[in-house]
């Protein structure tokens, strides 16, 4: 079991390094460096070649790519992402507040989505292939077919404009108190929850239905165990592993959704920071946010896989999955 855990952790670390390499290559080793993409034509017209060379040296861009990558990576691993190109502010300081706000959004969403999705998924699996299941499954398809920017704007239109209950945009500062942030984040959370529930409940229903037709469940039924009991004591635990397997995809989808929702509601999070940084070509901020996003996905995936190792004796014995 320890071998499996060690193998799994080192795999995550390897992928983290590959991610960092990708993030670095995608932004830095292309024709034109970080400075070139950040400067507009107007900037270039004003600056002399000497000034450009000086700025390049100051940003460390005159060093070979491999050296820059290693220094960026060693910084990133301890949370130092360098300075921004335009204002020279430390990237870590800029993204700290937004990072907290985005984590808050992700946690609030997950806290609502997981119990509700379980509830819906279990109902659909219990009445599988009958009317309640058809209704749930069809609404789930509709639920995740609607992009966040559509459902978000629909919620704004209904609950902020036609019925002015909630604020349409988040007017708090980046470092507002957590409780105040949560209070005004009901619509953003609701927006992501719709898609998350649709995705999770479908996945759960599928896992449950598969478990419900398995031999040991049939055996339990023959032994006279009631159907509800079968669902809760046999099918739900058995569906846990396939659900955990989908954790990485769920987290990745959640983070993409959060980016869109932050834009819709002007929520001061990392997603909004990323979009602005991309549009301003502020490469160090882009690198930092994307790297942190991947860290989030890898961490959640690692946790899920470690839980699977703990839960599933077959996986434990085979010393980790390929």
């Amino acid at each position: 079991m320890f071998a499996a855990i060690a193998r799994r952790i080192s795999l995550s670390f390897l992928i983290l390094i590959l991610v960092s390499l990708f993030v670095f290559l995608a932004t830095e080793v292309l024709p034109g460096d970080a400075l070139d993409v950040s400067l507009t034509d107007d900037d270039l017209a004003v600056l002399t070649p000497e000034q450009l060379a000086e700025m390049r040296a100051e940003l460390g861009l005159d060093r070979p790519a491999a050296v820059r990558y290693l220094s960026w990576l060693s910084g990133a691993l301890v949370g130092d992402f360098g300075n921004t190109i335009i204002t020279r502010a430390p990237v870590a300081d800029i993204i700290m507040g937004p990072l907290r706000n985005s984590i808050l959004l992700a946690l609030a969403t997950t806290a609502v989505a997981i119990p509700v999705a379980h509830f819906i998924g279990i109902l659909a699996a219990y009445w599988r292939d009958r009317a309640p299941d058809t209704i749930v499954s069809t609404s789930a398809i509709v639920g995740y077919s609607i992009p966040e920017f559509v459902s978000g704007n629909a919620l704004i239109l209904i609950f902020a404009i036609w019925l002015p209950i909630f604020p349409a945009t988040i007017v708090l500062y980046t470092d507002g108190p957590i409780l105040e942030m949560l209070a005004v984040s009901i619509l953003p959370v609701a927006t992501i929850v719709i898609g998350s529930i649709a995705y999770l409940s479908r996945l759960l229903r599928l896992g449950l239905v598969e478990a419900l037709v398995s031999d040991y469940v049939e055996r339990a039924r023959l032994a006279g165990v009631s159907e509800w009991r079968v669902v809760f004591t046999h099918a739900v635990p058995a569906s846990l592993v396939p659900t955990l397997n989908a954790a990485a995809l769920y987290v990745a989808g959640l983070l993409s959704g959060i980016v869109v929702v932050e834009k819709v509601f002007a929520y001061p999070g990392l997603g909004l920071e990323l979009i602005n940084a991309v549009l301003k070509r502020e490469v160090p901020v882009v690198q930092a946010t994307v790297f942190l996003g991947a860290v989030g996905v890898l961490l959640m995936n690692l946790l899920a896989d470690l839980s699977i190792i703990a839960l599933d004796p077959r996986v434990r014995r085979s010393a980790g999955r390929g």
């Binding site: 993030v23 932004t27 830095e28 983070l255 993409s256 990323l274 940084a277 991309v278 996905v297 890898l298």
Partner: peptide, 14 residues
């Protein structure tokens, strides 16, 4: 490991 919108974001500047 890289969410799709983040993947697009990291590719656009370059």
């Amino acid at each position: 490991a890289i969410p799709s919108i983040l993947l697009v974001g990291v590719l656009i500047p370059g």
